[in-house]
Amino acid sequence: MRFSRGFAAVVSVAALLSAAPVAAWGPLGHRTIAGLAQQQLSEPAQREVRALLQPDDESTLVDVATWADDLRDTDPALFRSTSRLHYVNFSSAQCNYVPQRDCRKGECVVAAIGRYENILADRSRPRAERADALRFVSHFIADVHQPLHASFKRDKGGNSVQLRYGRENWNLHAVWDSLILNSTGLRWPDYAKRLSASPAPSAADAGGDPAQWAEESCRTVRDDGVYPDGNSIDDEWLARERPVAEQRMRLAAARLAATLERLLGPGRR
């Protein structure tokens, strides 16, 4: 599959060298969010997703859930030019988003979601561009709900925070990307069933906009124990923080589904 670089945000090499790593949730988290969102789409919206993706031998949101991260290997140049679009850095624990300060030149996840939503909604654009916009929207909405992708701390999204788990060394970002979820031993279909067993977010909770979602993630970092007290974690800590991660995933799925329904569903604008 190919991406039209005409609408990719261009990021300077100097900026990329100082950017935080971009992986969020890991494959399990991204596929679980995508699977939950797919289940919530109307049949007309699902048909639109299939129409956009099937020429590239894909058909569901799960199929493209990790595409934006996989670019690191499949298209390094495109990965470099879009890597800053996976996150946003807040200036303080007040967690108030100011575009001119927190997203200069539109190079952050908040602006990226809106930009690619517009491309996806524009039926005059080539299918391939809209398909890649769908891939980016699906991925970035998941990313903005990972707390460490919208933090106010100056530690590269927790990558600089080193932790000990048993005999293993981890950084905090990787813990939230992968360990909290993978330690359940579940694969994404079973994890989606697990999350579906809890009440779905209300229509009001499924609303909002990317700036509000990022502010929520920032407040989660501030208020909900995302950072452990010491430099080691155990299964008890993972079990205590897992519901926080899972609620962010439920919200991501509901908001992704609502966004795609608005852009691709029967009531599309």
Results as ranks from 00 to 15, higher is better:
G225A: 02
R240M: 08
F152S: 08
D223A: 12
V161A: 12
P189M: 15
G157S: 04
R187N: 14
A197G: 11
N159K: 10
A239W: 14
D209C: 12
C218S: 08
A200T: 08
S232E: 15
A245W: 01
K153R: 06
E168M: 14
A245D: 02
L172I: 06
G158I: 01
L251R: 04
D224Y: 02
R154I: 05
V161C: 10
V244H: 10
Q162K: 15
W213I: 01
A204D: 10
A214E: 01
P199T: 11
G207I: 07
S198N: 07
S151C: 05
G166M: 11
N182F: 13
E241D: 03
G166C: 11
D235S: 12
M249T: 02
A206E: 03
S196T: 09
D177I: 04
G185V: 15
K156L: 12
V226E: 00
R154G: 08
W213G: 00
Y227K: 02
D209N: 08
F152P: 09
R154L: 05
L251D: 02
L195H: 05
W170T: 11
A192P: 01
A253T: 06
W213A: 00
L163R: 02
P210L: 01
Q162I: 07
S178T: 11
G208H: 01
V175E: 03
N171H: 14
S232V: 14
